Computed example of a mutant assay.
Amino acid sequence: MIVVMKPDASGTQIETMAQQITSLGLTPQVIRGEHQTVVAALGQERPGLAEALETGEGVEKVLPIMAPYKRASAEVKKDRTVVKALGLEVGGAKVAVIAGPCSVESEEQIVAIARILKGLGATALRGGAFKPRTSPYSFQGHKEKGLQMLAAARAATGLAIVTEVMAPEHVPMVAEYADVLQIGARNMQNYQLLQAVGDSGKPALLKRGMSATIEEFLLAAEYILDRGNPDVILCERGIRTFEDHTRFTLPLATVAYLNEKSHLPVVVDPSHGTGKSSLVASMSKASVAAGADGLIIEVHEDPKRAASDGAQTITPAAFGQLMAQCRRIAEAVDRTM
């Protein structure tokens, strides 16, 4: 339920309503807008609940939350959420660009590419220290040493670090080094991991599962939000379909739909979404035009020699061209990069 308070409702009336919601066995969430305050009553709804709340002092009306994802729903929070971490801001007027290699290979490599990417306009650095791979024989990442390498790149450039965490027991260690904790597609419904990331207090970048529906995606985000962590970034990274001309199918209608149904910022991963470096620029431009709040792109000095995912990785030169093109698209839709 959403309790919409009158524009002139006092702070005491709002607090009293929150206490009443708690007494009914629900969790109150006070959301203060520019002109009006609402109090969300989160939990299992039951008959007679609306009637019990609408008689409170200062209440204008009580509305049901139709979506099963209560905290992530635009019904609860009309203002868009903006997630910030160091110089990274996702959800504002500026389109964020998170870029870097798929895997952290060495400190020299990650510091060098970070400096190049910052000069070309990237607002955060991505890089895998822990790498979930389909084959157990593939490179699995440098783990904590990789995190230390990422921290060195941040010290050298000031770029926020976005890196993947794979297990609940890894969250404290990754959170010590990273600015944004990424939850990969294979872990989207790893509920213990979602809760651990929610408890970490660090912003989360949640990738859509490769076979997940939008409702499942938003309910996964709900697990993080439900732990009191409001800083969740949704990432469309492509889904599995019958098509085989690309690694995955990148459905950009997802961006517009999520912007309609949720207040959470949305970024797009055209690298994983296509699996082909030649398509990354086109899908990046399309993502910005569709209303994406950011891009996450794999960049390596020599993609053919990359430790992982070289086929979908672009060069710094190609990244520079992509940024120039995307800036023109962003300007056309009243945004900046």
Rank of each mutant, 00 (worst) to 15 (best):
R227K: 05
S103A: 15
K145N: 03
G238L: 06
I14V: 15
G127P: 12
G25R: 02
D226V: 02
Q325K: 11
R335K: 14
V4K: 02
M188E: 08
L150I: 06
I329A: 04
L295N: 03
H170E: 08
A41P: 14
P265L: 05
D8E: 15
R247D: 13
K78H: 06
A160K: 05
P64F: 12
L219F: 12
G291P: 10
F139E: 05
D269Y: 12
A256V: 07
Q109I: 03
A72W: 04
N259D: 06
E144K: 12
L219D: 09
L42T: 09
G238C: 11
R115D: 03
I183G: 00
L279P: 15
V280C: 01
T213S: 13
I214E: 01
I296M: 15
V171P: 10
L26G: 03
V59P: 07
S73D: 14
V38H: 01
C102F: 10
E298H: 04
V95W: 00
G100N: 06
V232F: 07
M17Y: 03
Y177K: 01
F139W: 12
S278K: 03
R335I: 13
T123A: 01
F319C: 07
K261Q: 10
G158Q: 04
S308D: 02
R247L: 09
A151F: 05
V38E: 03
L218F: 10
G100W: 01
M17T: 09
M188T: 11
E236Y: 00
M149L: 09
A317I: 14
K70P: 14
G198V: 09
A52L: 14
Q13L: 11
G127S: 12
I214T: 03
Q20F: 15
M210R: 09
H35M: 08
M283C: 07
P316S: 05
L86C: 12
V162Q: 01
V266K: 00
V268G: 05
